[in-house]
């Protein structure tokens, strides 16, 4: 680059050729952008048409969309399998939420052993696969305590097994939420004579939960999918959930259509929830 002070005669007449210089690329900027866009669409259409032409539609339909196979799954797919999936999710979420809240408060406690315990718990359960925890709850604990039973049978075991891990994640989320509430809120509450606990319950936690509702809803979506691990506990006809139900149907019908049905039923739960999260996040962003 030449220094501006050297060519001090920067009159419009001398700069005009410089402006025209990009014109040597034949295409203007706008035309080039339009061409690139068109090429993008063209590739997309080509791929779609190519796949559609190559696919054996009849065979696909016979494999994944057999109406008679799908029909045979109902009403059990909804009244038992979907219902159990929802029940497992709700139980594990409720257990995880309560335990997670307790752990979050312990992590913020002024009593050091509480902090140590909460930290150890969170690190442990975040570091273990959920499947391993379920095995531990389903087979490890019963063997160690043979004369005791986990209340609620499979329901109790799933609640404990999935909830224990969920609690670790939720504890960290809730802790972050509590810490995101400005310190002045606690100070104002305490200066009005509220005790530490009262200020936490009436002032800090309501605002913290508002902050963490979107991440907690994501945790709920994750739990919904993780209930598919319940099969390792040996579910029966009455405690069966969606994935095992679909797997059994796959075996008995020798056709993968049940997998598609189960997938659609999962999406019926998770898609509205993801939409809800997006809406909540937009609303939270607006309020700020």
């Amino acid at each position: 680059m030449t220094d501006g002070s050297v060519t001090d005669t920067n009159s419009p007449a001398t700069t005009a050729p410089v402006i025209q210089e990009p014109g040597r690329r034949r295409l203007g900027r706008r035309r080039r952008e339009r061409l690139v866009r068109a090429a993008g669409y063209a590739v997309f259409v080509l791929v779609v048409v190519g796949v559609a032409a190559a696919a054996d539609w009849q065979r696909l339909a016979d494999s994944f969309f057999r109406v008679d196979v799908a029909r045979a799954m109902f009403p059990g797919a909804v009244t038992t399998a979907l219902r159990n999936t929802i029940v497992y999710t709700l139980l594990a979420f409720a257990f995880g939420l309560v335990l997670g809240l307790v752990l979050a408060l312990m992590r913020l406690s002024t009593i050091a052993p509480y902090r140590w315990f909460a930290t150890a718990y969170i690190e442990l359960f975040r570091g273990l696969p959920r499947l391993l925890v379920l095995f531990m709850v389903g087979y490890g604990i019963p063997q160690a305590f043979p004369d005791r039973e986990i209340p609620g049978g499979v329901y109790g075991a799933v609640t404990l097994g999935l909830g224990a891990t969920a609690a670790a994640y939720m504890a960290e989320t809730i802790r972050a939420g509590i810490q995101a509430v400005p310190k002045g809120q606690t100070e104002a509450a305490r200066s009005l004579g509220m005790s530490h606990g009262r200020a936490m319950v009436s002032i800090v936690l309501p605002q913290a939960f508002r902050i963490v509702i979107p991440p907690l809803t994501n945790e709920f979506v994750g739990l919904t999918k993780d209930t598919s691990l319940a099969y390792v506990l040996g579910v029966t006809a009455s405690t069966i959930e969606l994935t095992k139900f679909a797997g059994d149907a796959l075996n008995s019908q020798v056709n993968p259509t049940p997998l598609v049905v189960a997938g659609l039923l999962y999406l019926a739960i998770t898609l509205p929830l993801s939409q809800l999260v997006r809406w909540l996040e937009r609303r939270a962003a607006r309020e700020r």
Partner: peptide, 30 residues
């Protein structure tokens, strides 16, 4: 503290409560 009123630089109103509830919550709870 119940007998000492405090006013802060940053107001510190309770954001999740309406103005009326900001005034009533500690009257009721404390």
């Amino acid at each position: 503290r119940r007998r000492i009123g405090m006013v802060f630089q940053q107001f510190n109103l309770f954001g999740h409560l309406r103005v009326r509830e900001n005034l009533t919550i500690s009257q009721r709870r404390v």
